[in-house]
Design a protein around this nucleic acid. Structure first.
Lengths: 378, 378
DNA sequence: TCTTTTTGGTCAAAAAACGAACAAAAAAAC
DNA sequence: GTTTTTTTGTTCGTTTTTTGACCAAAAAGA
């Protein structure tokens, strides 16, 4: 608690509430803080005059409260924010207003894994282009997601087995220097979870598991309505769960890891194998939609679901949201996962659970980055 | 927030802080609430005059703050509390003062699984005997743990595959009627975690996994310093995780469940099998300490550890605490589990992790119940 | 021994929140 | 279509609450 005076404390608390929810009335604030409407009024009018918040003109007011005069919605005022999504071979940059509404975005193909410096330069350039294009002079905050574990305290990239070109770097510092705005770094799966939490399939869930199934498998937990990062910020590293009876060689050196069996590359290998004669390098997840491909996706989803079912028994989430390229590749993958989860999870746990593809698809991470940046300001 | 006036709010907050920590000074309160020492003084003197709290006479004051006058410790005043631990074939009841310090306890052997009514009658009687014995006329709260999932909202016993005699009952209501004091019901593993959190191996951890390995396998999560119950209160049901390549029949009807392979009964079966000629019914976990028994325990721990390692990758705890009869049965079991966890968990996750036997042994659940009862009062 | 640091305690002054009042805006009742 | 009910935003005098300054006490360090 850094605020010294009680007014400061209440002010901060209200600003937090206004920023957290999107569209809060003075009456809502009075209820959730326990203060009187008069006190709220005094503080809010202060915030208004400092233009920290503004009143929303829209006449939106859910009839949830029933009858009565509808309140005027308050929203936090702020400069635009930016989000950066480093994928394994793409880079996606976007700018949004302080509420997380997209202003513009750009995506390029680039080998992010190896050339860390290059990738960060490209990101800074792309962002700079976007800012010029949309006339965004000021940025409030930037958040970036990278496909690997990030140390919570130091901000350094952790695992030596993946992202070899990034290990030991501090992307937050590096990017911050290039962009000139403080940058927050997160694991990409964590950002995906945030994206779905604020504006996707997780909107109505307080406890869910987000699984990003792309070139690797990463997971992220939302517990009690908040991102859970684990004791040392490594929560969600399920990609190297050992599958019994499997011998596929994984890039980590072990055999039978989940992400050696279920990943974009593994699925494409299987597709290529069952569709001989084509060019392996030209095949994508969208190349075929025949029953054989469907079955490959379904079976891959089933394997993932079997692993996830054990995790659901431990965590008892109310939703499992499957993102990443495989989550967006079609119904078969998600259905396979759902089938396995329902089959192997405890009946009561499975009954309280929905399995969904990420609503935001492969843009979940980007939207999560924007949301995080918009909410990063204390 | 039910308190209307700001003084009420601050008062409640301070009472909560005093109850949560054991031994807090006025200066501590000022720091953690952000209020001035004067305001704290006013509120605390009010609490003292209402004898809601009292000053601890002991001159204990850790020199952690360095030099300066030591503060006087405040503790919450309250009536004694009781805890009840229903095991699969035992019943353990205890009374403690409002700080959770044991006043007295009693344990009897009883088949809890089948005869719910009988077990609850026995618990009420035992508690009544204890109260008479230690001259405890007033009880503030009671908490009870049962070896099965409890629905958070309704308080009803859930799973139909275990605790067949308890399904559909509301033990909180039933016990409350018999005892005459509000009773709080929790899953036993959750109580074990609480016991270790407040006064055991979890004291210095904010994120840990507690595993109770007795007749079944149950787990419980402490995340961010608080018990995590899951989206619908079913978190920790890992007993029926499917083990690849195993075919042991489980009481749930499936084959190859973790608790069909690793449990007190399964271990004793193996001991009996390797020590022929004895009476199967007379064997306990303590009957033999020879290398063969050690190896059986070690191997059972290893199987448990393999399952737990996947869970650690998801949750990234800083400790795994192993309780239950197997956790207390000797070093071999816990060592086997630790070995497997270190072998199969992500290196960075394993490095941030300690694996420990429950310090409170098979009394962890009971102490957790007492702690919960002592803290249940808002 | 003397200084420094931290704590518990007191009181007037300042700050903050409350409660009561009123107008406004919508839904519900008539 | 009008009236009633409900909920909200807004203002202001009153009351409550907190602060800030001050002092004595109790330890640790010079």
């Amino acid at each position: 608690m850094v605020d010294s005076t009680p007014r400061q404390r209440n002010r901060t608390e209200m600003l937090r509430l206004i920023r957290a929810g999107q569209g809060v009335t003075r009456a809502d604030l009075a209820r959730s803080t326990g203060l009187s409407r008069s006190a709220v009024q005094a503080i809010v009018s202060g915030l208004l005059s400092e233009s920290q918040v503004s009143e929303l003109e829209v006449e939106e007011k859910g009839p949830g409260t029933g009858s009565g005069r509808p309140g005027t919605l308050l929203v936090a005022v702020g400069d635009p924010v930016a989000g950066i999504d480093f994928g394994h071979n793409h880079l996606h940059v976007a700018i949004a207003d302080s509420f997380g509404r997209l202003i513009g975005d750009r995506r390029i193909e680039i080998d992010v894994d190896l050339a860390a410096e290059e990738a960060m330069n490209a990101a800074a350039e792309l962002l700079s282009t976007l800012r010029a294009e949309h006339d965004v002079t000021r940025l409030q905050a930037v958040a970036a997601g990278i496909p690997g574990p990030v140390d919570l305290a130091s901000g350094l990239v952790q695992s030596p087995t993946i992202l070899s070109g990034w290990v030991g770097l501090s992307p937050a510092t590096e990017l911050g220097r290039r962009i000139g705005v403080p940058v927050r770094i997160e694991n990409d799966a964590a950002l995906g979870a945030l994206g779905e939490l604020y504006g996707g399939a997780g909107r109505n869930h307080r406890d869910f598991l987000y699984v990003k199934a792309s070139h690797g498998i990463g997971a992220s937990l939302v517990l009690g309505g908040d991102l859970y990062r684990g004791g040392t910020g490594l929560a969600g590293e399920i990609g190297h769960t050992h599958l019994g009876g499997r011998t596929e060689l994984c890039r980590c050196g072990n055999r039978g890891c989940l992400e050696a069996v279920v990943s974009v590359a593994a699925v494409i290998d299987q597709i290529a194998h069952t569709h001989p004669g084509g060019d392996r390098a030209a095949i994508t997840l969208e190349s075929f939609t025949d029953p054989i491909t469907e079955r490959i996706l379904h079976e891959s989803g089933r394997i993932l679901g079997q692993v996830v079912s054990d995790l659901c028994n431990l965590v008892n989430p109310t939703a499992v949201i499957i993102g990443g390229e495989l989550g967006a590749a079609g119904e078969a993958f998600v259905q396979g996962a759902e089938q396995a989860i329902r089959r192997y999870a405890q009946p009561a746990t499975a009954a309280a659970l929905v399995v969904r593809a990420a609503e935001l698809g492969n843009r979940a991470e980007l939207h999560g980055a924007l949301a995080l940046a918009a909410r990063a300001l204390v």
